[in-house]
């Protein structure tokens, strides 16, 4: 649906843009970088353009999309989609204090190319010594949302980490999220839990995506 809507507003051949690639395109007469990402786990586009063109572009997309069933969605909807896909969000799963290796994104960093870069030595040391913490994903089997910064408890009740992201998955009909936990606690399924207003809820470890990606 996304491709059909955007294609109706541009002469650029969107079919030539592969998943996670981008190209320049004039959409509704507005110069854009069209990135085939969307960050939802499904086919979609992110359009980068001059801020002054935002309203005109949004109105053109909405007018073109309504016949296809397009509806507006806000950041809450986007957050549930990206979490279901297991995509990290800067400020949550990756921050200035959470390295790509800790975040499980080691594949994005090439340490064996022989060229130095800022932070390279620190990442190499982390890779060789083992990261003391790691980012894991979870679901709870319960509808109560486990919010960011909720302490994560180990099997003996001691705090072994904190929640990074949490929302309700409309597809799974249960709370899902990510957490920053000690590597020492991440044995097997972890046995983690959280306290939500006095109720102890177990965190069931999930290797994302939570739902199959449709790309």
């Amino acid at each position: 649906m996304a491709a059909a809507i955007v294609q109706s507003l541009t002469g650029a051949k969107l079919g030539l843009i592969k998943y996670y690639h981008f190209a320049e395109a004039t959409v509704a007469g507005i110069h854009c970088l069209a990135s085939r990402t969307g960050y939802t786990g499904e086919d979609g586009f992110e359009l980068y353009h001059a801020a002054s063109e935002s309203v005109a572009l949004a109105e053109a997309l909405l007018a073109a999309g309504v016949p296809h069933g397009l509806e507006l969605a806000g950041l809450g909807a986007r957050d549930s989609l990206r979490l279901e896909a297991g995509f990290p969000l800067y400020g949550h799963e990756i921050t200035a204090d959470i390295s790509p290796l800790t975040a499980g994104l080691g594949w994005t960093v090439k340490l064996d190319k022989g060229s130095d870069f800022v932070g390279g030595a620190a990442l190499l040391a982390e890779k060789q010594g083992g990261a003391p913490n790691q980012v894991i994903f979870f679901k709870t089997g319960d509808r109560r949302i486990v919010r960011a910064d909720t302490p994560v408890l180990g099997p003996d009740g001691t705090i072994v980490g904190r929640v990074l992201s949490g929302t309700l998955s409309p597809i799974l009909n249960e709370a899902i999220g990510s957490a920053f936990v000690t590597t020492a606690s991440a044995v097997g399924e972890g046995g983690w839990s959280v306290d939500i207003r006095g109720a102890r809820l177990p965190l069931h470890r999930v290797r994302p995506p939570f739902v199959p990606l449709k790309k």
């Binding site: 809450g76 549930s80 109560r144 949302i145 919010r147 929302t167 309700l168 207003r197």
Partner: peptide, 9 residues
Amino acid sequence: GVVESVKAA
């Protein structure tokens, strides 16, 4: 009681 939405409890 508590009413919880995506935004807040």
